[in-house]
Structure formats: C-alpha cells, structure tokens
Amino acid sequence: MMSGTMSEIHDPNAPQSTSDLANTGRMDVSAVLDEGRGVVVPESVGEVVFNLDDVHVFYGDFEAVRDVTMQIGRNEITAFIGPSGCGKSTLLRSFNRMNDLIPGARVEGLLAYHGFDIYAPDVDPIEVRRRIGMVFQKPNVFPKSIYENVAYGPKVNGMKVNMDDLVEECLTRAALWDEVKDDLKKSAYALSGGQQQRLVIARCIAVKPEVILMDEPCASLDPIATAKIEDLMKELAADYTIVIVTHNMQQAARVSDRTAFFTADVDAQGVRHGRLVEYGPTRSIFTAPNDPRTEDYISGRFG
C-alpha cells in the first residue's frame, strides 16, 4: 500500500508547485490526536526507520529538546519546521550521533534506528554515521579535488569498489556529473555554492547510507540552485530516507511527505525548550493544522 502511494508522490511528471499539493498528497491522512501531549501523531508511516520515544536532548544542564515522540518512515521525506532556536538542528544531529562531538551534549529517551537504540553503550557512532549521512547548511566541501571529495568517504570506510565508477555514479545521481566530468581534478572550491552543495550530496551518497539528514541544505543557495537540490531530493527519496530541516515553508510543502512542526516553550524558570507540536502528512499540516501555533507559524504570524 505504501509503495503505491510513494511512487505516485515521487512521480517526476507530477505537478510540483505548492498549490498542486492536494493532487500529490493521496497518502494515509488518518491522524490521531495524542491527547496527553497535544501532539498529532500520524497513524502509520509505513516501514519505520527511526522510532523516537520521549527523546530529550541536553547541552550540559540545558534541555534544548524536550519529550519528542515520533516515527520516521522509510523512503519518505520528512521536513522539520519551526522558529529559530526550537531545537530542529539539535534533534537532527542526534539522529546520527553528531551531537557526540559537542562536549556536554547528551540524549535521553529512546532513539531507535530499525529497532536498535543508537545510544546503546555498545553502539559505535562511526557505524551509525556510515549508515546515516548528513548534509549541512554551508556546503562543507573538503579542500581537495572534486574526485577526492567523493572518494573520501569510501576510502576512509575501506570500501572495496571501483572508485572511478563510484565517483561517476554518485556525481550523476547528484545531478552534477555533466557539469564537472571534464575537470574532476579541479579543486572543489572552484565550484559555485549550488554545485558545492550537490557535490556534498554526492559525497554523502558515496558511502551508501540509508538515510540522509539535511540541515537547511538550501539556506545559502539561490532559487535556481535550490530548485535543483529539491528535484534531487525527490529523485533520491526512491532509494533513501530523507529528513530535512528548513525555514522555507514552500520548500517543506514542495518536497516533503510529512512535516513536523517544532516550537520553543518557555518553562517556569524562563528557559526555552524545543518541543514537537504537530506531526503529520505535509498536506494536512499545511491545509488543516490541528494546533493553532502551527497555523500561526505556517501563515507567517509567528516566529
């Protein structure tokens, strides 16, 4: 059932503008309201890749993200939206243990990947990150050639592959091959911002991850480069599970299957904690949000 729905959503011929969302959103929209938390949890996300149960993320004593319970479905694009500082990046970075690199950061609650708690003591964060790649806001290409950028991940992971073929394959998938095939030896810094971001995506898929986390991947790009990355995401969703943080409402509406809206609550001590307010199929979040805060935010009256 799910796969039928998916192929429809990622049909390249399908209309892609916001106003046509209704045409593409023929997925399971029966959402239930979790009374206890006031959070809308979709009834089913198909095959579950991430299962979050009561997840809290801390920086030292500061609880940046509080009590998130949600599931992320396979081969879907899930968008995280919400005002600045509500913990979207923090939560996203905890999906592949990038938070381990920040001294004092820690996660409480269950964050399971295919049923395995990724914060269990015997889990190797390097194995986690191999399977769950990440693309950042600023295109962080390495000071190496275009070729070496793509080859870096497979090399450090000791993958036994034909590197030339892999580089070509990944650059092709990232819709960059035609633009760079004649100067693979050139420094990656010579590329434009949009090309660099596609190179980063090529580099990311070269280690054959299952999930790609994207933290505002288009924030530093112009509309044309943004459109290219968005097309690419839709392409990639056939094979990968994608979670994207974005401040661009149209982008969330255009590309994602599901949307999670976060906001920051102020507690009795005046400390702000990020919380999940509403999570559901993108179409219903944008057309019929359950929570007034969601409605205010997406209509631009908030944050």
Binding site: M98, R129, G133, M134, K138, N140, C204
Partner: peptide
C-alpha cells in the same frame, strides 16, 4: 579550519584520526 569540515568528515563515518 572551519568546524564544518570536521563535521563533514565525521558525518561520512570517518574516525578522529582520519
């Protein structure tokens, strides 16, 4: 060196040494 480069490497499953 911008910390984004380190993040990029770690996100590919690189070790500290790599």
């Amino acid at each position: 060196v911008p910390s984004g480069l380190r993040d990029g490497a770690y996100a590919l499953g690189a070790t500290k040494r790599q």
